[in-house]
Simulated assay, not measured.
Amino acid sequence: MNKLPPIAKVYEALSAVADQRVEMHADHAIVTSSDHTKDYTVKFLPDGYSSNDNATLWQHYPGYPILAVMIIQGKLKSNPECLPWFQAVNWKQLNTQAKNDYDKAISVFLQPFSKTIQNQIVDEVQNLFDQLSSMEITVKGNRAPRSQESRTK
């Protein structure tokens, strides 16, 4: 992998997994955005992944849809006991309110939790980020059509 994502993308990926917004198929996955307005297509490559999310497409690092798929596949080992902390977080809204200052958005996300839980969350995210940083995978953008209709659950 040529470029690591901001650590904030791990938080977003954990929320996608916690909310069960990842739909796995044989050769690809569909990942729904945190505000449920977009679907992203993650294609499985022999040596990695491609995705049509903006981070992967334009910044050339694995966006949260790829990271969420890697967690589901067990390529990134997460602690399932931590997942409830990441449920129902609208990262799109948090990032917009923070003017895309990811550190500020993470701080807002962490505020309601006790210091003990905050530390556990930060440790879990750092663990996943460390796993990712030691991997050799190919990450590419793809031009799969992106669904932008409002979705209801």
Score class of each variant (00 low, 15 high):
1 M>W: 07
1 M>L: 12
2 N>Q: 12
4 L>H: 00
7 I>F: 05
8 A>W: 02
8 A>Q: 04
9 K>Q: 09
12 E>G: 01
13 A>Y: 08
13 A>S: 10
15 S>A: 11
15 S>M: 09
17 V>S: 03
18 A>T: 05
19 D>I: 07
21 R>Q: 06
24 M>S: 06
26 A>C: 14
26 A>Y: 14
29 A>S: 12
31 V>T: 07
31 V>G: 05
32 T>K: 05
34 S>M: 10
35 D>M: 13
38 K>L: 15
39 D>Q: 14
39 D>W: 12
42 V>R: 00
42 V>W: 01
42 V>Y: 04
43 K>G: 13
45 L>Y: 07
45 L>P: 03
46 P>R: 08
46 P>G: 04
47 D>E: 13
49 Y>Q: 02
49 Y>K: 04
52 N>S: 09
53 D>E: 04
54 N>K: 13
54 N>S: 12
58 W>I: 01
58 W>P: 00
60 H>K: 03
61 Y>L: 01
62 P>D: 02
64 Y>P: 00
66 I>V: 08
68 A>R: 00
68 A>D: 01
71 I>W: 00
71 I>T: 00
73 Q>I: 15
74 G>K: 01
74 G>M: 11
74 G>Y: 04
75 K>T: 08
76 L>G: 01
78 S>K: 00
83 L>I: 03
85 W>H: 12
86 F>Y: 07
88 A>C: 09
89 V>K: 06
89 V>W: 01
89 V>I: 12
90 N>D: 04
91 W>R: 00
91 W>N: 00
93 Q>H: 14
98 A>F: 07
99 K>W: 12
100 N>H: 14
101 D>N: 11
101 D>T: 06
102 Y>W: 11
102 Y>G: 00
105 A>G: 05
105 A>C: 05
105 A>Q: 02
108 V>F: 06
109 F>K: 08
109 F>E: 07
111 Q>W: 13
112 P>L: 14
113 F>L: 10
114 S>M: 05
117 I>H: 06
117 I>E: 06
118 Q>W: 11
118 Q>M: 09
119 N>E: 12
120 Q>Y: 08
123 D>E: 11
125 V>M: 07
132 L>F: 03
134 S>M: 15
134 S>I: 15
137 I>L: 13
138 T>S: 12
138 T>W: 07
142 N>S: 11
142 N>K: 05
144 A>H: 13
145 P>L: 14
145 P>K: 13
145 P>R: 12
146 R>K: 15
146 R>T: 15
147 S>Q: 14
147 S>H: 14
148 Q>I: 15
148 Q>G: 15
148 Q>Y: 15
149 E>G: 13
150 S>M: 12
